[in-house]
């Protein structure tokens, strides 16, 4: 029983980080209908900024804050410089569906290469702000640490902030309106372009949080968030790609599912597990768990 609970806790910790990455992908998808593969690049850059700040100040919170700001700016920048230019030139046809994806993949390469140029390709390290030692009760060790708790709390905080913004503020209403029906939103006086930029900034900030949370005590390299991107993407698809709650649930489903399979079936299955979970969800619910009943009308 104890083993089961600790497996669950590990799953929730990992899942919380997947949820954040999924959230950042969903935020962009909702506003622009693009899967932003460059998110892994934006997040790794932001994480290196956190690393740099933590090296200089020794303050993890300061590092996290810097990463969030840089992540948001980078997100906004990608939207304004790359996406707007792209969409100005291509409006329709097969190219319009493919070009943004290729562009974000290309950008991912560019950012990773730049990170390599600035910080080198060797692994860097920064420590977690709190203990990563497993809790122990008497003789039994639960593989769950203070840092795991911090990860879950931080992810929960991010989700609460988004819930409040989306449900309680007029900015949130504008974000939802622009995502669902851009024409109506524009006729209502919403500057959909600016709202889109804000969506990308939120996404960038969220991706940065995910990057900083997953990296402590691990080797930080230009490629080290690639797997997180894949797991985040799978989580987002499980959640229906359009739903913020879906992204969170998708991340947790994947995290817990992976932890269970790892614990009971073996560690060699770590990587394929994500896709097995994805396949099962899509067979049962082809639109994802939280797919909207109706398609968008715009």
């Amino acid at each position: 029983m104890l083993a089961f609970i600790s497996t669950l806790l590990i799953g929730i910790t990992v899942g919380a980080i997947y949820s954040l990455m999924a959230l950042s992908l969903v935020l962009v998808w909702r506003s622009t209908r693009v899967i932003n593969f460059a998110q892994a690049g934006q997040a790794i850059f932001s994480t290196y900024v956190a690393y740099e700040v933590i090296q200089r100040t020794g303050n993890f919170i300061l590092g996290m804050a810097a990463a969030v700001v840089v992540g948001a700016l980078l997100g906004a920048l990608v939207e304004v410089l790359l996406m707007r230019t792209l969409f100005k030139r291509i409006h329709s046809g097969a190219v319009a569906a493919v070009a943004p994806v290729i562009a974000t993949l290309g950008l991912l390469g560019v950012i990773r290469a730049s990170v390599g140029l600035i910080w080198g390709n060797d692994g860097h390290r920064f420590d977690a702000p709190v203990s990563t030692q497993a809790f122990s009760m008497g003789n039994t060790v639960i593989p769950f640490s203070r840092f795991n708790l911090l990860v879950i709390a931080t992810a929960a905080l991010v989700m609460i902030v988004f819930t409040v913004i989306f449900q309680k503020t007029s900015l949130g209403l504008s974000l939802r309106a622009s995502a669902f029906a851009p024409e109506i939103a524009r006729l209502s006086g919403i500057r959909v372009g600016s709202i889109r930029t804000i969506g990308w900034a939120f996404a960038g900030a969220t991706g940065a949080v995910a990057g900083v949370l997953i990296s402590p005590n691990d080797s930080l390299t230009p490629n080290s968030l690639d797997l997180l991107l894949i797991f985040g993407f799978v989580s987002a698809v499980i959640g229906g790609l359009d739903s913020l709650i879906g992204a969170v649930v998708g991340g947790l489903v994947l995290g817990i599912g992976k932890a269970l399979i790892l614990a009971y079936l073996g560690s060699s299955l770590d990587y394929p597990t994500a896709f097995v979970v994805l396949a099962i969800v899509l067979i049962v619910r082809p639109g994802g768990i939280f797919s909207m009943k109706r398609g968008r009308n715009a």
Binding site: T169, L173, S174, A177, L187, R294
Partner: peptide, 30 residues
């Protein structure tokens, strides 16, 4: 094509049209 937001209430749908009265800027309202 009417275009109401299905998952919002009627009141919220109408509020979307009242953006010009939301005087606070985007950032401050966030």
């Amino acid at each position: 094509g009417v275009g109401l937001f299905p998952d919002l209430t009627v009141l919220e749908n109408v509020m979307v049209g009242a953006q010009k009265f939301a005087k606070t800027g985007l950032i401050s309202s966030a």
